[in-house]
């Protein structure tokens, strides 16, 4: 272990905490609405965007946001049309994004290029700036407001989009809002967790919470809690072991998920417990 100035340490810890919160809260939507493949693509687009940002010397977070919004704009309408094979389009765009990312990385100016490039691939806890922290906390606040204000609409849509639409909700608006929020969450977290693994932080905590709860309110509460714990423990693991931070966080969240699958009360058969069940 090395010694760090305590402000740097605090910034990093807060960064991990907010990244965990932002990703795992949007994850609650992504998991339930089957947006996994779109989100996965989005995180790689954000990676390509960050590389692009580094190449033209702007804030990589800005590049990431631009690219992931582009994906939301292209894929949102596509995924709405059931007839179009959106999986094929996703597969195509996925490889295209990776190719772009590698090309951009190649052209990043300066000597430190490879180090900076690697950081947005693997993530790096000490690249969190105060600026990032402010953006992450504002975004976390926005997500909380979004969930609180539109809770009833979100529940209706996540249960069944057609029924939600039929009771007078403009579901498309919410669908796109969720895509954009996911894009921002991914983009803001990419510097910490890394472009290759940020998506795991979206999926794993919610999937873990899913193993325990039947009430979506609890998923909304516990999936960020699990996300935050994963990030903090992952941070600690990275400090003591020198593992890359992104890998540590994903490792921890994967362990949580595995434990959850094994001990999930949802998957257990009640022993000698008579369940009243009408036919």
């Amino acid at each position: 272990m090395i010694d760090f100035p305590s402000t740097l340490l605090i910034t990093s810890i807060l960064g991990a905490l907010f990244a965990g919160f932002a990703c795992s809260t949007t994850g609650a939507f992504v998991v339930r609405m089957n947006l996994a493949s779109i989100g996965y693509l989005m995180s790689h687009a954000a990676f390509a965007g960050a590389a692009f940002g580094l190449m033209i010397s702007i804030d990589p977070v800005l590049g990431a946001i631009i690219f992931s919004f582009g994906i939301a704009l292209i894929l949102g309408p596509l995924a709405e049309k059931a007839r179009l094979e959106s999986n094929i389009v996703i597969g195509f765009l996925f490889s295209f994004m990776i190719a772009l990312a590698f090309i951009f990385l190649n052209f990043i100016p300066g000597n430190a290029a490879s180090a900076r490039a690697l950081r947005i691939l693997w993530g790096s806890i000490f690249s969190v700036s105060t600026n990032d922290l402010v953006m992450l906390s504002i975004f976390s606040f926005i997500i909380v407001i979004f969930v609180v204000i539109f809770y009833k609409e979100l529940i209706a849509i996540m249960f069944n989009r057609k029924l939600a639409e039929s009771s007078g909700i403009n579901t498309r608006l919410y669908y796109f809002a969720i895509l954009f929020l996911t894009g921002i969450a991914v983009s803001l977290s990419i510097r910490i967790v890394g472009g290759l693994l940020v998506f795991a932080l979206i999926i794993n905590p919610t999937s873990t919470a899913y193993q325990f709860f039947y009430d979506f309110k609890k998923i909304f509460i516990f999936s960020p809690i699990i996300g935050i714990i994963s990030c903090l423990v992952g941070f600690w693991l990275s400090l003591i072991s020198d593992f890359p931070i992104g890998a540590s966080i994903v490792l921890i969240s994967a362990i949580f998920f595995t434990i959850a699958i094994i001990f999930s009360p949802k998957r257990k058969r009640g022993k000698l417990k008579i369940h009243q069940k009408a036919s």
């Binding site: 009833k152 609409e153 249960f159 029924l163 009771s167 007078g168 909700i169 899913y210 709860f213 979506f216």
Partner: peptide
């Protein structure tokens, strides 16, 4: 495994009636 309780599903029918920016 769907994480919804029956009462919340029944309530979701009222979503449009209650209106945006309003709470049940």
């Amino acid at each position: 495994l769907a994480p919804f309780l029956c009462k919340d599903i029944v309530m979701s029918g009222r979503t449009g009636k209650i209106g945006t920016f309003r709470f049940a």
